[in-house]
């Protein structure tokens, strides 16, 4: 479970204080699928960075799995990131000179994952995301959708509690986007907490809950009544 309480985050830009979050409170239950929406500059990215332990709030408390991270050292945050958080980026961020397998194995280097089981685990994850035939391919030999699958497999490497996805379908065609969304749905069904940041109302409706931000606070927090299902959409189109 993730609990944010009265979070303020202020940036210093050329000596001027720019508030990004102003007293935001939010609770995300374990196993939830939450979408965060809002216009540019509403504080979405800042919130995502705080949830991902890449940054610390100026004030307020942020608990991840019962641990208060708001006063942690940068080293402790790095350790927490490697154990509890998986990132999925809009631009994939794969290492271009490494194979799919090597990319998925990258997080093991920074966690204490047993060396002899690393390869088997990476193979298992790539198989899970449907890339068992692409293990030795480099990113430039794969489509955008395949690259994002590699990135998701990498995010799952250390079996994190939370998956943070920042516009995961933003750089993909609609078909590949739907497949990635279906993959996220499946992960959520199997118990992963998923936080999805997006501009797209349509994508957000795949989540069970949509949180709207404006000017650094939550302005609306709604349960999605008619959830979309990418899995069903794909099946309806006669595809696996």
């Amino acid at each position: 479970m993730v609990r944010l309480k009265d979070i303020f985050k202020t940036y210093q830009l050329e000596g001027i204080e720019v508030p990004a979050l102003r007293g935001l409170s939010l609770t995300i239950d374990a196993g939830a699928f939450v979408a965060i929406m809002g216009p540019s500059g509403c504080g979405k990215s800042t919130l995502l960075n705080l949830l991902g332990c890449l940054d610390r709030p100026t004030s307020g408390t942020l608990e991840i799995g019962g641990i208060d991270t708001s006063r942690m050292s940068r080293t402790d945050l790095a350790v927490l990131r490697s154990r509890k958080i998986g990132f999925v980026f809009q631009t994939f961020h794969l290492l271009s000179r490494a194979t799919a397998l090597a990319n998925v194995m990258l997080p093991f280097v920074y966690s204490s994952f047993p060396k002899e089981r690393r390869k088997a685990r990476a193979v298992e994850l790539l198989t899970y995301v449907g890339l068992q035939d692409r293990m030795k391919h480099r990113p430039n030999q794969m489509s955008g959708g395949q690259q994002q699958r590699v990135a998701i497999a990498r995010a799952l490497a250390n079996d994190p509690e939370i998956l943070l996805a920042d516009e995961p379908t933003g750089n993909l065609d609609s078909r590949s986007g739907l497949e990635i969304t279906a993959l996220l749905e499946r992960l959520n069904r199997e118990g992963k907490t998923i936080v999805l940041v997006t501009h797209s109302r349509e994508l957000a409706e795949h989540a069970e809950r949509v949180v709207h931000l404006l000017d650094g606070v939550v302005i609306r927090d709604e349960v999605v009544v008619e959830r979309r299902s990418a899995t069903a959409q794909l099946e309806g189109a006669g595809q696996p």
């Binding site: 790095a78 990131r81 490697s82 990132f87 997080p107 920074y110």
Partner: peptide
């Protein structure tokens, strides 16, 4: 990216 994946500064 390495930092996001858990690399500490000494790493």
């Amino acid at each position: 990216l390495r930092k996001a994946l858990g690399a500490r500064e000494p790493d």
